[in-house]
Amino acid sequence: MSNTITVRPVETAADKKAFIDLGYRLNATDPNWVAPLRDEVKALLDPRKNPWFEHGEAQLFLAERGGRMVGRISAHLDHLALTQPVEQGMGPGTGNWGLMEAEDETVFQALIAHAEEWLRSKGMHRSLGPISLSVWDEPGLLTQGFDHSPTVMMGHNSPAYPGWIGRAGYLPAKSLLTYDLDITHEFPPLVQRIIQSGEKNSRIVIRKVDKSRFAEEAALILNILNDAWSDNWGFVPLSDSEIAHVGKKLKPIVFEDLIMVAEVEGEPVAFMITLPDLNEPLKPLKGSLFPFGWAKLLWWLRAPKVRTMRVPLMGVVKKLQASRLASQLAFMMIEYIRREAITKYGATRGEIGWVLDDNQGMRAIAETINSSLNREYVIYEKPL
C-alpha cells in the first residue's frame, strides 16, 4: 500500500460527506469528544445556510493515503475580518485555517502546507488559526483541559495537535480561557455586598429576556455585543443576517430565566447569556438524531436538567466598561442566573468562557467569585 499523501480540494457532494465523516471517525475513540449533530456541521459548510459566506470564502481540503481519507482542513478568508485594525489581531493580509483533523503529523504538515498555499494565492501574508469558520464559531485549539468533555459550542481535539502546529512554524497569538465554578455555594461576602448595593439602586433593573419578543431581544443583545466587544482582539462584527441566524439557531436552548439584560435608567447597557449544557444529552447520540435521538432531545428540551451551565457571552457597553458599575452589573446578573440554574435546572457547576487572556476585567470577576481555570484554547499565527 502506498504511503504517498495526496491532498486535494473538496469539489463534490461525496467529497464534502467524506470531509464531515472524517471528524467522527478520527475522534471516535476519545471518551471526552462530543460528536456534533451532523446536520449542524453540514449547515456550517453550506453557503446557502450559513450567512458567514456572505462575507467569507473557504476552500476545504482532503488528504488521502493508500485509498483512505486520513485528514482534512479548511482555508478561508473573512472579508469583514480583513477590514479590522491590525492591532486587534485580524486586519489586511490575514487569512485563516480550521476544521483540521489528521491521522498523524505527516498528514497534518501536508494539509497545512496546502492551506497556506491557498491563502498566499489570495494575497494573504499571515496565517491565523485554527478558526472554524468564524471567530464566533469554534476559535482556537485546545491545549489544556483534555481530561473532560467540552460544554455546548466549545471544541475538543487531540492533545497531539499543539505540538504539530508548533513544528509547522506557528507561534501562539492569543489564548482563550474558560473558568469552572461551583455554583452550589454563595459568592464571597464582598460580592454579596456589591449585589445588595445594586439592588437598592433604583436606577438599575436586571430583567429576564422576553421570549415572546425573541427577534427583538436577540437583536438588542447582539447589538450590545457588537459595541461591547468592538475593541477586543479578534473582533469581527456580526452582520444583520448573522444576528438573525444566531438567534434562530439558539432559540431552542434559550430559556428566559437564564439570560439577563441590565438596564440603567431605562437603557439596556449589559447582558449575560447562559445556556444549559446541551452536550450532556448530545454526547450519547454520537452525532445522529435517528432513530430515536430526536425524541430524546425534544423531551430534554421541554424541561432540561443538567449538571453544567455555560456562560458563552457577556457584555457591557463600551462607555461603562471602565466603571465600577460594570462589575456590579456583572455580579448581579451572575447571581440571579446562579439562583435560577440551581433551583429550576438542578445545575451544580458553571463554566464561563471563553475569556481573552488579556481581559483583566473579566478574569478578575471570574477569580473574585472563586472560579478556576479549567480549559485553554490557543490561536496560532505564522507569517506567509
Rank of each mutant, 00 (worst) to 15 (best):
G169N: 08
G353T: 07
A218H: 11
L45I: 08
Y336S: 04
V378A: 12
W233S: 05
D46A: 02
I206H: 03
Q321K: 14
I20V: 14
K200E: 15
N374S: 06
R126E: 01
S327N: 15
L329C: 07
L320T: 04
D21W: 00
A168K: 04
A270K: 10
P9K: 13
Q84T: 08
M69P: 03
T4Y: 03
A115H: 09
A215R: 15
A173E: 06
E367W: 12
S134R: 07
D180I: 12
T143L: 13
G198H: 00
L301V: 10
V107Q: 00
Q321V: 09
W33K: 09
P36H: 05
P130C: 15
H148Y: 13
P312T: 13
L258T: 09
L289D: 02
V41Y: 09
K319L: 07
Q109C: 10
A341Y: 06
E116Q: 15
V254E: 00
W229C: 11
V311A: 06
T274Y: 09
A63C: 12
E138D: 05
N201C: 14
V236G: 02
K174V: 15
P383I: 10
L22V: 09
A262P: 09
A173T: 07
L37Y: 01
L37R: 06
Y336K: 03
V135W: 07
L190A: 08
I194E: 00
I194S: 03
R310A: 12
R363Q: 14
V191W: 03
D227A: 07
A63S: 08
A326V: 13
A341S: 15
S132N: 15
S197N: 09
L141V: 13
A110F: 00
P268H: 10
G234M: 04
F61I: 06
I131Y: 01
